[in-house]
Each structure stands twice: as C-alpha cells, then as structure tokens.
Design a protein around this nucleic acid. Sequence first.
DNA 1: ATATCGATTATCT
DNA 2: GATAATCGATATG
Length: 210
Amino acid sequence: MPDPPSNIRPLPRAFFARGARRVARDILGKILVREGTPCLTARIVEVEAYLGDKDPAAHAYSGQTLRNAVLFGPPGYAYVYFIYGNHYCLNVSCEREGRAGCVLFRALEPLTGLEAMAHARGITLHSAKDYPKLTSGPGRLCEAFGITRARDNGCDLTLASGGLWIGDDGFRSRSVVLSPRIGITKAATLPLRYFLSRSPFVSGPKTSLL
DNA sequence: ATATCGATTATCT
DNA sequence: GATAATCGATATG
C-alpha cells in the first residue's frame, strides 16, 4: 500500500513569503512528502533560519552565485547543496524574489515509508531506537528521502505534483524552543535554531535558550 | 554524555 | 589551495 497522503494539504506560497524566522517557527509540525511507492512522509521537528545577505553564516552572504541562485528567487522552492564531500542539505526559500532568506531542514520524525528510508540510508531497523538514525540530521534526512541537488534543487515545494512537497495535516506543535545554530563558525550565537523540545528525533543538543 | 577526527568534493578566493 | 549549514567511528568520563 502506497500510503496516500489523503489528509495532507500542500502549504500555499504565502506561507513561505515571510521572514525566515517566522517560517522556521511555523514549519515545525508540518510534513515533508516524497511521492512514490511507497510514499515517504515525515514530520518536521528541527530547522534553522538563515537570514540572507545580511547573515554571515548564510550561503547568500556573499551575493548570488550559480550555486545559491534559488535563494534569490521566489519563496517556496527547494535549495539543495552538497557539503563536506558527502552530504546534501535541504532548504526552502523564503521572503520574496531578491531576498535570500531560507530555512534549513535539520531533523524529521518519520511517519510512513520507514523501511524504504532505511534502505536508502543503508541501515537495518532492529527496533524503535533505530528510527532516529533515519532522519535526524540534515544529511541523513536527505539520504532517507533521496534528495540530491541534481534531482531536487529548484523544485517547487508547494506543488503536490512536484514529487517533493511540504504539507499540513492540522497537527499543532507543542513546546517550540530556540537555540544557537549548529555547525557554523560565523554568527554562531544567534538563536535561530527552532525545534520541538519533546521530540526524540531532534539532532544535536536539546538545551534551549529563552 | 561530550570530544575529536577522518572522509571527500563543490565552490569560492 | 582552503573551506565547509555533516556523519560515523572511536575514545574517554
């Protein structure tokens, strides 16, 4: 059974046409969907906001290049980049054309298609304690969903027909907390990482600020 | 639980 | 030529 996402509606473009911090906070609890057989779905539990050309930690900081061009386009599109010679990372563009804010996906709670995700990750699921190894971490979630730059960069994440999209099933997030962003050296103290403090699928420390 | 380190390549200086 | 929005393995407390 292909697990059709019957009660999941795509988020409208207007959702993404806001500042990266608000999009980051509100996108927690939404669902990342990869159409296919089976359909892969997972709830977003950890993200980071990147603020565009004023943010020293953002890829847009030094202006537009071929690599980061999607960030300077309209909101709601996938920016996928390759890092450390090994991993892809997924972002969604925010704000509006010419404004390069975005949100980085850091961790998901897998909902459907877990065996397919495990296969894509090259691991075997022995018990529930293996589930976080599927999608906890920016590189891991991309591997689980088969996300690559060649395949998904520039994809419209508001279109269910696009193969990769972001949906809302009415879930209301509890206990959203903030912390500094992970793995960066510039602007490393700003509290721009958003996560659900109750979720066991969050990557990295669960100590919050504020 | 936290710390350190090697792998591996696109992108930019 | 240096760097990087990471991961997995290893070491140590």
